[in-house]
Design a binder for these strands. Sequence first.
DNA 1: ATCAACTCGATTCGTGCAGTAGAGTTTATG
DNA 2: CATAAACTCTACTGCACGAATCGAGTTGAT
Lengths: 167, 167
Amino acid sequence: MRISQKGLYALQAMMMLARRYNQGAIRIRDIAYEEDLPEKFLELILLELKNARIVESVRGAKGGYQLRRDPSEIRLSDIIRLIDGPLAPFGDAEQLRSLIDRDTEHRALYQLFLDVRNAAARILEHTTLADIVGGKGPGSKRGPVKKKAGETPVLPMVVPGSRRRED
Amino acid sequence: MRISQKGLYALQAMMMLARRYNQGAIRIRDIAYEEDLPEKFLELILLELKNARIVESVRGAKGGYQLRRDPSEIRLSDIIRLIDGPLAPFGDAEQLRSLIDRDTEHRALYQLFLDVRNAAARILEHTTLADIVGGKGPGSKRGPVKKKAGETPVLPMVVPGSRRRED
DNA sequence: ATCAACTCGATTCGTGCAGTAGAGTTTATG
DNA sequence: CATAAACTCTACTGCACGAATCGAGTTGAT
């Protein structure tokens, strides 16, 4: 699952809308300026988010965009799936399950792909915009997803010499 | 982290080489035929794998390709990183850490990307070719990675009505 | 010697990503 | 009601990358 530049822009814009939730609509231009995103491109993205009923627009003078529901009700997976498609590293979950059933030679490989997709889904479906913005409000029930062993804490404790294997 | 068609071909070819480990070299043509991969494209892929010292070639008549080390010593992440690049869904781990340090506005977002990459890395760095081929040999120490809650068992127990949310 | 087999640069074709342009429509407000 | 602010939407471009294919060249087994 690759997150494109467009996907990143979408997430940034949504974070900004989440921070200003319940403070009225924001103009595309202001989002673009404050987040430093290409304005016309952002326009396209917001249109997609609107068609997916995640945000809504207010037309005319003093118009702009705002979230359609509470930040705690918008999962990151909603946004990513919309803009960048399935979370699986290859194909989608449906297709992988089918391959696991039919392609006995490569079953274990596809099963692994599915495991990777499930790991990503577990994170991204359990994290909402509210978890991601510093918002004072209650947000969802917990911090950025229940921390399992190995996940880095929010303030990462940078130990300069501790460089591990890189991507 | 998207796995391309090329990446899938590479993994399939490597699985086949792993199955025949210690049985001499196999011709490109035979791999292509048995795995049903485009021959000339596969040639390119094997060349890359050779330059990365994962496989080796035997030239001349009776030549072909074979693994350079035991299947249990070849991690899937080795192959995927070579062919398709970093495991992170956006950028690479290094870059994400840097963004987490510098971009305070979006810190939590990049942290999440890093969590996703770590989840994928944890799976793909702990699974070797030996884990993936049905091989009778000892392979590595365990099955396809220690199963944590939520990972599908190898034989997936298909309950027809139990369709969950799809990608 | 000869042929199987790998090596490798060049090329093609299509798709998708990233972004731009501009005309059209709606509506708040003076 | 005029008008400017703002969204709506279609079209288009440039470029890079993915997925191959081709063919000439080199090496080595027998």
